[in-house]
Write a protein that binds this DNA or RNA. Structure first.
Lengths: 329, 329
DNA sequence: TCCAGAAACTTGAACGATCCAATCCTGCCT
DNA sequence: AGGCAGGATTGGATCGTTCAAGTTTCTGGA
């Protein structure tokens, strides 16, 4: 059968040396036009593909990016990761990189996995989704000069490393303004306990939008862990306490709970969730939608910027979410 | 800083040759106990990790498995893939393999991607999720002796290649029997048009369970493309035509539509969906649940069986689903 | 004690690409 | 014609590992 096509086969076929073929691939500008075309013809005629392992051995670069796949926590917000990963794979592919998956049950193991992936596969970079205050993972990577990007801001030090994020405050503000425009005044907010960057950010957007409209947000918000049952409980509480006519939630899970609590109210209380998950789309819940494909693409941009030596690219990207209006708003 | 630790470093440290270190790693039984321990100590003392690129160059094997990540079609069933991928990554990891992602918009491009992945990265195997009748992808892979497993049966020729699947008929049968046991007799079925293996299988389970109980299924089923709106339409149709007291659906999307159609019926019509998606869990829809983690694990088992030369493993695995009972049933 | 045969270990070569340094052209100037 | 600069091209070395083919050490039986 057809024997393996290496750079030497191509060289023979195009009557040039191996190095010239290599140059055509890696530094086309130093090869004479005529020679280049002859080599390119040979490459496509023979169906040559550069062997990544051999290349990697010499250059030390694998053109592989690692991303973590989580065990689908509550299932509702899980699909956010799914969509992000798909975008990542697509964009990375276009940039000549491939995405390798890994899992880990805790930070310590995750860091052990970093060592393994770097040592064994010589990964070029990592994409981390979601980081916490004082995250040991980013510290470990930064210490070793391993390129990485996070999807999610490092809330304590915005310049610590490259990141891409979606402006959650802008999202909840937009949702709130939409409700204000529809005539609502008592617009409540159900969010997460203070202290998480993401949660505080989303609440701030709602609060600022109300202030902007001259509405006092006092007493109109509640905090809880994420979950449908939690959302339902707090919404009942709000209905009794302040009788809001609309509510903005920090997640679709909370919004889903809120929807159950308001069933039968007349006129119906408006509800807007966050993340535009499949559940929201399925049941007609209005929700703030994150541009996950864009976010993934920008992550790849930042990484290739670092990896391919182009240091002029910005290192922080903040994307604007949009509002997916459905019949609950 | 610490220079790179190679097999030669370890060899020097343990006062043996490179080859002996290699043997400790790849064929421990031919190395004397004492020597083996000395080498293993050196390995952990130096933190040595075998360089995958170099190994691959010699052996031609990458310990990489490719899996496709889809663009989250309707969003509801998308999370099935998500969970499957997570399981795959976890099990592959344990078996010493890593999962590489790829995407493709159509079969032709997907096959082109196969060529690229095989040529460039020398992938060891592919995992395909869902195959159709006369799938060009499996044919292409089989032609080239590329190891692969499908999650989903090849309905036209069960012995064509290794596969793992979930017994859909058993799932719908179980759902139907549950409803029968609850006293229902007019149990309808909403499924997909005849011709798709998966759809026919799921319908067969419902039909057989009814026959088993002496109930005539004639007129009790409807067929449509997948979708919430479609499910709702057919359910309204069924309500008028045969007034069923319960319905089994081929997907959670259809079931969700059915739920909207029956709103307000008294006594409530029971609904059971399929796939146990996050949406179902969120809104309390009973659904047939596929053991996705198991399925992924069995896929890896089959692949490693082929890759590591153990030909005694079975090549077909049919897993049993379970019924996630919630308040709609 | 010696030797055959097995077991344990070592050395040289190879995988396929890139880097390096040396050589070969080519056109241009004097 | 000769010399020269510069780009284009070439062969050899190299990355870290495993394979193949040696060489040494061990073991046990005569």
């Amino acid at each position: 059968m057809a024997e393996k096509v290496t750079i030497a086969t191509v060289a023979r076929h195009a009557r040039v040396s191996r190095q010239t073929v290599s140059n055509v691939l890696n530094a086309p500008h130093i090869v004479r036009e005529e020679t280049r075309l002859r080599v390119e013809d040979a490459i496509s005629a023979l169906g040559y593909r550069a062997n990544q392992a051999a290349r990697q051995m010499r250059t030390g670069r694998s053109r592989l990016i690692a991303a973590r796949i989580d065990p689908t926590r509550d299932g509702i917000n899980g699909s956010v990761l799914d969509r992000f990963l798909h975008g990542l794979t697509e964009t990375a592919d276009a940039a000549g990189y491939r995405v390798l998956l890994y899992t880990a049950t805790d930070d310590e193991r995750e860091i052990a996995t970093y060592g393994d992936l770097l040592g064994t596969y010589e990964l070029d970079a990592f994409v981390l989704v979601g980081t916490k205050h004082g995250d040991p993972r980013t510290a470990w990577l930064a210490d070793r000069d391993v390129p990485f990007v996070t999807f999610g801001r490092p809330w304590d030090a915005l310049d610590a490393h490259p990141w891409v994020d979606v402006d959650g405050a802008a999202g909840t503000a937009q949702a709130t303004r939409h409700l204000l425009a529809a005539g609502h005044r008592r617009i409540a907010f159900i969010g997460w306990p203070a202290g998480s960057g993401v949660g505080d950010d989303r609440r701030a957007g709602w609060r600022d939008a109300l202030h902007e409209a001259g509405v006092d947000p006092t007493g109109l918000h509640r905090e809880t862990e994420d979950g449908i049952a939690q959302g339902e409980r707090l919404m009942r509480d709000l209905l009794v306490a302040v009788a809001p006519t609309a509510v903005v939630c920090a997640s679709d899970s909370l919004a889903l709970g809120a929807l159950q609590a308001i069933r039968g109210t007349d006129p119906p209380v408006s509800v807007i969730g966050f993340d535009d998950t499949p559940v929201a789309a399925a049941i007609g819940l209005a929700s703030v939608s994150q541009p996950l494909g864009d976010a993934a693409a920008r992550c790849v941009d930042l990484l290739t910027g670092v990896l391919d030596g182009n240091h002029e690219t910005p290192t922080h990207v903040l994307l604007q979410p949009s509002l997916a209006l459905r019949h609950t708003a």
